[in-house]
């Protein structure tokens, strides 16, 4: 069998293959879906939301862990998605010779945002 030629854009996570990217995408969307449902039911149950109700809710260990889990899922999900979009639309046939730098800066920005989101949410949820 013929050897594959090297990809310029390899995969979303350095060691991952197509199957794991695909699975991560599905699992993270399940996490995000259930997080959204949890928040929705919180808003439905508590008609009036005061600072006290809000902090009590997010102060529980469960919600802290769930919130961090959700933002990690959002970052991973977003990263794979943005990585794929960049691989489709930031290419030589759209940008000519500057496609490489354009794609690299775009991916760098996406990675930075993904990490910052996680960092900030961890600080907000666990910091005092």
């Amino acid at each position: 069998m013929k050897k594959k030629n090297g990809f310029i854009l390899k995969n979303a996570f350095y060691l991952s293959g197509g199957a794991s990217d695909w699975l991560i995408q599905r699992i993270t969307s399940l996490v995000l879906g259930s997080y959204v449902l949890t928040l929705l039911s919180f808003f439905l149950i508590n008609q009036e939301i005061s600072y006290q109700v809000w902090t009590n809710f997010f102060g529980t260990g469960f919600m802290r862990i769930f919130t961090v889990l959700a933002v990690v899922a959002a970052s991973a999900h977003g990263w794979i998605g943005m990585w794929a979009i960049g691989g489709d639309y930031l290419q030589e046939h759209h940008f000519g010779p500057i496609a490489g730098p354009v794609r690299k800066s775009y991916l760098g920005l996406c990675a930075l945002l993904a990490i910052l989101y996680v960092v900030f949410v961890v600080l907000i949820v666990w910091g005092n």
Partner: peptide, 18 residues
Amino acid sequence: TATEERLAELEDPFSVFR
């Protein structure tokens, strides 16, 4: 009989998963 080899060639994020 080459199912495994065929799949191995396709596992990257582009060949099939795109």
